[in-house]
Design a binder for these strands. Structure first.
Length: 661
RNA sequence: GGACCCGUAGCUCAGCUGGAUAGAGCGCUGCCCUCCGAAGGCAGAGGUCGAAGGUUCGAAUCCUUUCGGGUCCGCCA
């Protein structure tokens, strides 16, 4: 599931190993250094060890705030730590004094070249270049598995998309799909056992309305295919006015009776027939082919059949759309089945046993009172005990379950399946729903299971800087399939992850296919293509061979900068996963690509820095090792994002030169 | 009335859960192709981090207040 991309042809087969769930990173020794994936974590451990030696009387938790990170300003060195500052108070020492002592200790470490206390108690660390270079074989050894966290043993359920099965997916769903899939991949890479889940809302009134709409499409087909259908429909219509009777009596196929049926359905719902889109036309056909004229007089049972038939048809389309996006869920959960399995009753009994349910009347919402407000007694859940603003209804006044109640059932089901963490990706319009759901999960699991909700903001689709209207009524409705057709799957996925989820974003159909620096999709792909180009030109050296290369020729500042960037990948993964922010991966890849392009251009200015120099085989081999490692990290990140790394860029700008401007 | 999210360069956005002189792209100015992909790169200019208080060694980041923008607020999901 995390292996959405293919191993590019031409890469050694060994690179494909990343698609297996990697083994926990095992320290190995090479070049005299202990090899670990995250050198920042390694140095942090060293730092805390040193602190313990200096301050044996301090409790272990005194060190919890110690951070070893890349300094903002590269001139300060390779790493910086706040260690002296964060423990100084508890140690009753002045930070600069402690920093000086700690610095002396750190200077003895084999990895470290130079240590300098600075400012209010920072310690800047300069690593030995050979230690940094020694990370390249680590990367080459594990390939795209570089950055994988050690297995955490945590079972995490990520639920996303969950579009109502009432029509094809549109761009609004797309962001949630991409963010959810990227987040799930990210959490898996960080070491969690992830289940990707889709919750099918197939139990509500909207689905019922969908069934009626599908039935109407079926009627249209029936009248055309079977002359006797009109008579049977007339009996379903019941009491007819004189003019209606005339319409029925004189109805031709496609004639007025179809409209009469529509009006009657709309009366039934006191609204317009929903889901008027053409996508239900094939469903009407299929219903006719499947059931013939037997559905002409709908009742609860036959309508139930139509409903599940229609939902199945919609889900088939949705799954096809998701597949086109490269999104695959492990589990599809049906709301109706969860309820049918008794989870709603079970959840209610559980909450009741905890004394968290009562009969009561809610206050009307202030400021904006609905016209038809009346106080009504309902079954309420004490959400306020878990941080919500008000208690929440579980049952409607007619006794049936609210959506919230069904969702509680769904979450109980998840908890029973043994998940430790639940993660949802919702549209921001569901933001008001987060607190009550957290409250419910806390109540049902006695605070054992956490619920995190990532909200995604609206996407404004633009073309050439002009907004594209997405009104169903106007018919210019952009489906997900249209979007993928227009700009391609990789562009959709990457672009959707170049913004924090909870920030509105503009998606310009023109820009995301533009091949230039300001299109990060292209920029990162370009870096990968260039790397592959060099490796092809160098005759595809084996990764295992490069891993054994003498790297001492890598001395240029641009080469070292690229190595440093590579070494931060594990902590980027860890941080992004902890924050539930997959967009950080996109930004990291952009930075990594930038470091690479910079190095590339150094070779243009200074021929001695070119990657392939036949007269210097040792330096060439070292540089190819650096490139192979960079490529592996690029692929590692693209894999999380679900974007295919390309071998080469095709020139798709054909015709551009013919156009003026 | 209340809840949640967002205010950072002219524009679009990052800012690694409290660190040092706040960053990137676009746009603007000036440079770099005898070359493994110039579809790139370098340099310059551009900021009271919406505002005001507070917490502490230290705040764009945390707290309070306030001003703008968005989303939502009992029987829709």
């Amino acid at each position: 599931m995390v292996c959405a991309h293919q191993v590019p042809p031409g890469l050694p087969a060994a690179a494909g190993r990343a698609c297996l769930r990697p083994e926990p990173p095992r320290p190995l020794r090479r070049s005299g250094f202990l090899m670990q994936q995250d050198i920042f974590a390694a140095l942090r451990a060293r730092t805390v060890d040193a602190l313990r030696g200096l301050l044996p009387e301090l409790p272990e938790d005194a060190f919890s705030r110690v951070v070893v990170e890349p300094p903002r300003d590269a001139s300060h060195g390779d790493m910086a730590t706040n260690a002296a500052m964060v423990v100084a108070k508890q140690a009753k020492l002045a930070p600069p004094k402690l920093a000086a002592d700690l610095a002396a200790k750190l200077a003895e470490l084999p990895e470290v070249a130079e240590v300098a206390p600075a400012g209010p108690g920072f310690i800047n660390i300069r690593l030995k270049p050979e230690y940094l270079r020694a990370q390249l074989p680590v990367v080459l050894a594990v390939g795209e598995a570089y950055g994988d966290g050690a297995p955490t043993g945590r079972k995490v359920n990520v639920e996303y998309v969950s579009a109502n099965p009432t029509g094809p997916m549109h761009v609004g769903h797309c962001r949630g799909a991409v963010v959810g899939d990227g987040l799930a991949n990210l959490l898996a890479k960080a070491g969690h056992a992830v289940t990707k889940e889709y919750y099918i809302n197939d139990a509500g009134a909207q689905v019922q309305a969908l069934a009626w709409a599908a039935w109407w499409r079926y009627v249209v087909v029936a009248v055309r295919r079977d002359p006797a259908a009109i008579k049977e429909l007339a009996s379903w219509l019941g009491d007819l006015t004189e003019s209606e009777a005339w319409v029925v009596a004189n109805s031709e196929p496609d004639g007025g009776i179809v409209q009469l049926v529509k009006e009657r359905i709309e009366e039934h719902f006191e609204t317009k027939l929903q889901y008027g889109g053409n996508y239900l036309v094939p469903v009407g056909e299929a219903l006719w082919n499947e059931f013939g004229s037997s559905m002409l007089t709908p009742n609860d049972s036959s309508l139930g059949t139509i409903r599940s038939f229609t939902v199945a048809a919609m889900m088939k389309e949705i799954r096809a759309d998701l597949a086109a996006l490269g999104v695959t869920h492990d589990v599809f959960i049906s709301e109706a089945e969860v309820v049918a399995a008794g989870k709603l009753d079970e959840a209610e009994a559980t909450l009741n046993a905890k004394g968290l349910l009562y009969r009561g009347i809610l206050e009307p919402p202030k400021g904006k009172t609905p016209d038809d407000w009346e106080p009504r007694e309902q079954t309420l859940f004490r959400a306020t005990q878990f941080g919500d603003d008000t208690d929440r209804p579980l049952r409607k006044s007619d006794g049936s379950g609210t959506y919230f109640a069904n969702d509680i059932a769904n979450h109980l089901h998840k908890i029973e399946r043994g998940f430790d963490e639940l993660v949802h990706v919702w549209g921001a319009d569901h933001g008001g729903y987060v607190k009550r759901m957290k409250a419910a999960v806390a109540a049902l699991s006695d605070n054992r299971v956490s619920l995190d909700v990532v909200l995604t903001q609206i996407v404004h689709v633009l073309k050439d800087g002009q907004p594209v209207r997405m009104s169903k009524r106007a018919g210019s409705y952009i489906t997900l399939a249209d979007l993928i057709d227009e700009v391609g799957r990789d562009a959709v996925r990457f672009t959707m992850l170049t913004r924090k989820a909870d920030a509105q974003m503009e998606f310009d159909l023109t820009k995301v296919v533009e091949q230039s620096r300001d299109n990060p999709v292209f920029y990162v792909q370009y870096a990968h293509a260039r790397i592959r180009s060099v490796l092809r030109a160098a005759g595809e050296p084996a990764v295992a061979d490069l891993a054994g290369a003498d790297l001492s020729a890598l001395t240029d500042s641009a080469e070292m900068a690229l190595i440093r960037r590579i070494t931060t990948w594990p902590r980027v993964v860890e941080g992004a996963a902890a924050a539930r922010e997959p967009h950080r991966i996109a930004f990291y890849l952009n930075d990594l690509a930038s470091d690479f392009h910079m190095l590339w251009n150094r070779g243009r200015e200074d021929a001695t820095l070119r990657f392939i120099r036949p007269e210097e085989p040792v330096a060439t081999r070292a540089r190819l090792a650096l490139l192979a490692a960079t490529g592996a990290v690029l692929r590692s990140g693209l894999q999380v994002m679900g974007v295919t790394p390309v071998e080469e860029l095709r020139d798709e700008r054909k015709g551009d030169s013919a156009e003026p401007g």
